[in-house]
Amino acid sequence: MKILCYGDSNTWGFDREHNCRIQQRWTKVLQSLCAKDEIIEAGLNGRTTTFDDPYNEHRNGRKTLPVLLKQHQPLDMLIIMLGTNDLKNVFHASEFAIAKGIRELIRITRNPYLYEFDYKPPKILVVVPAPIHPDYKENESIMADFGDRGYEISLKLKDTYKDITDEYQCEYLNAGDFICAHNFDCVHISEESHIILAQKIKEKIEEIRIQEGL
């Protein structure tokens, strides 16, 4: 299968503790676990679902997704893991607004006019990002960017995302069921969590492969 992984810094593999890119990021680990598949990395630090960041240009996921879908067609699967940056105070978005952003990305992906020849829209797996770590109040920069409200909403995304994926019959995986954000900065996940996430996504891919005969 050809799989596009669309996400933010937790897909790009940002390691804030060491200010570098994690080599054992989940997309790379997933490629090693799914050796016969083609895993395409499309992570961007600061990417949102549909919001324009006034401080960082070109972070709106809605605007860049169509280009990537056309560039890499034909695709068998799209994995979306976004929403953490939507929690920032600057957007003041509710859990419902963030879930609507995911809905918009699903709608874009399902648009048949994006695809040439007889290519069809890919299967969609939505991964709910791990919530903000509860130690966030001890980190001044994270507290300033996300605050109490961002933390509380991060805990609610698993439910609003599930409603959207049920409505649009997409595959669903809640990362918070098995990993958490690193307590160093309370937003990014550790290398160990990347490895666990890759394994769980691989298991989900195998389920989908059997269901769809891929």
Results as ranks from 00 to 15, higher is better:
107 R>Q: 12
48 T>N: 00
54 P>N: 07
63 K>G: 14
5 C>Y: 06
145 D>M: 09
120 K>T: 01
80 I>A: 14
48 T>W: 03
153 I>S: 05
123 K>Q: 07
167 E>Y: 09
69 L>I: 09
69 L>C: 01
174 N>V: 05
66 P>W: 06
47 R>W: 03
159 D>G: 14
203 E>R: 14
190 S>T: 05
212 E>V: 15
10 N>M: 10
30 L>R: 01
144 A>K: 15
83 G>I: 08
88 K>P: 14
204 K>V: 06
54 P>A: 02
49 T>F: 05
123 K>C: 00
77 M>R: 11
115 Y>N: 10
174 N>R: 08
118 D>T: 01
128 V>P: 04
25 R>Q: 08
108 I>A: 00
103 R>V: 07
15 D>H: 13
134 P>K: 01
129 P>A: 03
92 H>I: 11
193 S>W: 04
156 K>F: 02
66 P>D: 01
13 G>K: 06
67 V>C: 11
173 L>S: 10
104 E>V: 03
140 E>N: 04
190 S>Y: 00
30 L>V: 03
159 D>C: 10
36 K>Y: 04
30 L>T: 05
115 Y>K: 06
65 L>N: 14
131 P>D: 06
93 A>R: 00
155 L>C: 15
102 I>N: 01
188 H>I: 13
201 I>H: 02
116 E>N: 07
77 M>Y: 08
155 L>Y: 03
28 K>Q: 11
93 A>L: 02
9 S>L: 09
65 L>S: 14
35 A>V: 14
116 E>P: 01
14 F>E: 05
168 Y>T: 00
89 N>Y: 15
45 N>D: 13
210 I>E: 09
163 D>R: 12
22 I>C: 15
156 K>W: 11
95 E>N: 09
107 R>S: 15
134 P>I: 09
16 R>S: 13
156 K>M: 14
168 Y>W: 07
130 A>Y: 03
30 L>K: 00
147 G>K: 12
70 K>Q: 14
206 E>D: 14
26 W>F: 11
176 G>D: 05
200 K>T: 13
46 G>H: 01
138 E>K: 05
177 D>K: 04
119 Y>S: 03
204 K>G: 03
144 A>L: 10
201 I>S: 06
47 R>N: 04
48 T>E: 02
143 M>N: 13
139 N>C: 11
23 Q>Y: 02
124 I>L: 03
153 I>L: 07
7 G>I: 01
153 I>Y: 03
6 Y>Q: 05
173 L>W: 10
76 D>E: 06
112 P>L: 01
104 E>D: 00
149 R>E: 09
180 C>G: 13
77 M>G: 00
39 I>P: 07
88 K>W: 11
153 I>T: 08
9 S>A: 12
166 D>E: 13
45 N>S: 11
65 L>G: 15
153 I>K: 03
87 L>K: 04
27 T>Q: 12
186 C>S: 03
184 F>V: 10
122 P>S: 07
57 E>V: 12
79 I>R: 04
133 H>I: 09
59 R>W: 06
55 Y>S: 10
65 L>R: 15
156 K>G: 12
30 L>D: 08
96 F>Q: 14
139 N>F: 10
152 E>T: 12
209 R>Q: 03
68 L>N: 04
19 N>M: 14
10 N>F: 04
148 D>Y: 13
61 G>C: 13
62 R>S: 15
